[in-house]
Write a protein that binds this DNA or RNA. Structure first.
Length: 285
DNA sequence: GTCCAGGAAAAAC
DNA sequence: GTTTTTCATGGA
């Protein structure tokens, strides 16, 4: 069973390489196995046409929203003036990137682990958490074959409650390094409905207040807070500054990035800049 | 061996 | 209040 849809501003490979999600596994056949929440699908692309291995009901209720299909990315791209050569080139390079509506908890943990770390190891650590503490996801037959062939994840990301019995040693063994103590505290704070009340509280707040709320959590600083707000809470105006963006700012925008001009969707521009700089950086697989 | 990776907490100034 | 040091770990 599959759903096919068309979307010009959606490139699976670009999204997979954009560093906003760590739960996509490339399949030998060219697509990706994607795990999010209690759902699991395989995605394939042929030019503008995307194919998802799920039923129409699951597409309407989950994946359509996940891929942020109702947001107008073409309009944002069109807002970039040709006078900004660098951003124009970056946006042209990554015009298929969208900000996914991922599960907030998965994003919180992912970017907590991401600090002073590299993408392959982040991916590995999160995968370890799934294998050790997550529940197996239900797969229909054809998906199961595709996934097992690609050694994809067959486990959902563990909830705070599923992680409650985990010890510091467990998280260290998963490869978190010194970040293990951060996750231990985060689980303690978010279990037993803590996550739900946190999200309900955040929903009512302005961007800068959400940021402040996130900063109160142990192990979450400015950059990680912005990433969680952008990728986990879909606050599209957040502009996380990491090592890559910092390099771009000093090289291209010594006066600072014109955030006011892109008010409301600075985070999308940040993704274009990040992806472009990441692609140019020497560290390749 | 050294350096770096989507940084943040703790210590030192 | 601002700057510097420390923190695990694996890969180049």
């Amino acid at each position: 069973m599959s759903v096919v849809f068309s979307c010009p501003q959606l490139d699976l490979r670009q999204i997979a390489d954009s560093g906003q999600c760590f739960c996509w596994r490339p399949l030998p056949s060219g697509g990706y196995a994607i795990a999010s929440g209690r759902f699991f699908t395989c995605a394939f692309q042929n030019e503008d046409r995307i194919s998802l291995s799920c039923g129409p009901e699951e597409f309407d209720s989950y994946w359509s929203r996940y891929f942020d299909l109702e947001t107008d990315y073409a309009g944002m791209l069109g807002h970039i003036p040709s006078s900004d050569k660098y951003l124009s080139l970056a946006a042209q390079t990554g015009k298929g990137i969208r900000i996914l509506r991922q599960e907030p908890w998965e994003v919180m943990v992912s970017f907590l682990v991401s600090q002073n770390n590299n993408i392959p190891r982040i991916t590995k650590s999160l995968e370890n958490l799934r294998l050790r503490f997550g529940s197996p996801v239900a797969l229909s037959g054809d998906i199961g074959e595709a996934v097992s062939a690609g050694h994809g994840s067959l486990y959902a990301f563990p909830s705070p409650e599923q992680l409650r019995e985990a010890t510091l040693e467990d998280f260290t063994a998963a490869g978190l390094g010194y970040r293990a103590k951060y996750l231990l505290r985060l689980v303690k704070d978010m279990k037993d409905g803590g996550l739900q009340s946190f999200l309900e509280k955040a929903e009512k707040l302005e961007d800068h207040q959400v940021r402040r709320l996130l900063l109160e959590l142990y192990g979450i600083g400015p950059k990680v807070a912005d990433c969680i707000a952008l990728f986990g809470l879909h606050r599209l105006n957040m502009f996380p500054v990491d090592t890559h963006i910092s390099a771009v700012l000093s090289e291209v925008y010594p006066q600072g990035f014109p955030r006011e001009f892109y008010h409301g969707f600075c985070g999308v521009m940040q993704q274009y800049l990040f992806y472009y700089h990441l692609k140019k950086s020497p560290r390749k697989k």
